[in-house]
Design a protein around this nucleic acid. Structure first.
Length: 345
DNA sequence: AAGCCGGGGCG
DNA sequence: CGCCCAGGCTT
């Protein structure tokens, strides 16, 4: 039996029942695919249901304010996905008459839709014979065929895409694509796959050559950058505080936060006092006090944010401020959301 | 070609 | 603590 037929057989026996597998509606498929980029199924699932409830159609999503989209996305990470999701909803409504395009090429022109996602939507919804190559597929192909090209090198990416196209089942592309990903997620797992009862163990090069733990190959380990954040949690006598929206290039674009002072090293109360006296026009009631004397270390995949929250009480009225009760309405990073939850006014 | 972009779970 | 997750965009 061929590689693809073994995948299909395994899939029909072991597939999980996932909501986006019960439909061919490109809106729902697209939504699920964007959410599942670099995200586990269990993590994305509740967001998927909440989004469909809030935005039943692409028109509802297109008409929503971006803040509402970001708020619903809060906690899922990689927020450019949410901004691109919103932009694409508008594109579909305005340029495609509310209907998703049906070809790989047109799908790939949508914001946030790259090679994988275009192939996924085209094959799942419209039976277009395009192979999907995600992290699962890289692992399955690298092991089964014994490919040691780095999966994140241009030559590796090209090679795996061509290999995926050669071994796919074009006649059953929807189930085959879902099947090979599911096989990678469940059976050919990253760590400790149970090769003893794998239906593909007979032809698996990695198993034969004892390379299962060494494939796939991936280089360029990301190194972590350490930053020191000081958030100024202003409070006036009405319990109003200040929020600002993150602009520019870096992390958390368009999300909200308290006014931020970034420093080279951890700041102590004297340094903060000095900073506030020189940079702030507000009348302070007493010294700024760190809510957490030991920095909270918020870990992103490529940055460690050593963070102190400073309570800054002022006798002035924060005219541009936000009532503390309203703060939780804004889309914020998890770091901020956790703090808001724990602070008792 | 390399870097950047979140948050969570697991061994 | 490092790796991985239904990747994509920017430089």
């Amino acid at each position: 039996m061929s590689f693809s037929h073994k995948i299909l057989d395994w899939y029909h026996t072991h597939k999980r029942e996932l909501p986006w597998r019960e439909t061919r509606d490109p809106y729902k498929i697209w939504l699920s695919e964007i959410m599942l980029q670099q995200t586990r199924v269990v993590q994305g699932m509740p967001y998927y249901h909440r989004f469909l409830e809030a935005f039943p159609t692409v028109y509802d999503l297109a008409q929503a304010p971006e803040e509402k989209v970001l708020k619903l996305w809060q906690g899922l990470g990689y927020y450019s996905r949410a901004r691109n999701l919103h932009a694409t909803a508008k594109m579909v409504v305005e340029q495609f008459g509310g209907e998703f395009p049906r070809t790989y090429k047109d799908l790939k022109s949508l914001k946030g839709v790259g090679d994988y996602t275009a192939s996924a939507i085209a094959s799942f919804c419209f039976n277009v014979p395009e192979p999907v190559v995600d992290g699962n597929v890289y692992r399955v192909l690298a092991r089964y065929f014994g490919v040691d090209l780095p999966i994140n090198s241009p030559s590796g990416i090209k090679y795996f895409k061509e290999l995926a196209r050669e071994v796919m089942d074009a006649e059953q592309i929807r189930d085959y694509n879902q099947g090979i990903m599911e096989f990678g997620a469940i059976q050919c797992a990253p760590k400790k796959p149970y090769c003893l009862l794998c239906p593909l163990n007979e032809g698996c090069v990695a198993l034969k050559e004892n390379k299962v733990d060494n494939l796939p190959i991936k280089n360029n380990k990301t190194k972590v950058r350490v930053r020191h954040f000081n958030y100024l949690v202003y409070l006036d006598i009405h319990n109003n505080t200040l929020l600002e929206q993150r602009k520019g290039k870096g992390i958390w674009q368009n999300l909200y936060q308290f006014p931020l002072v970034e420093s080279e090293k951890e700041m102590n109360p004297d340094e903060m006092e000095h900073y506030l006296k020189s940079e702030s026009n507000l009348q302070l009631l007493d010294m700024a006090t760190p809510y957490n004397p030991d920095p909270i270390i918020h870990k992103l995949s490529h940055q460690h944010l050593h963070t102190k929250f400073w309570i800054v009480k002022t006798s002035d009225i924060l005219e541009e401020g936000t009532a503390w009760e309203e703060v939780s309405q804004f889309p914020v990073p998890v770091l901020i959301a956790d703090f808001i939850r724990t602070l008792k006014i």
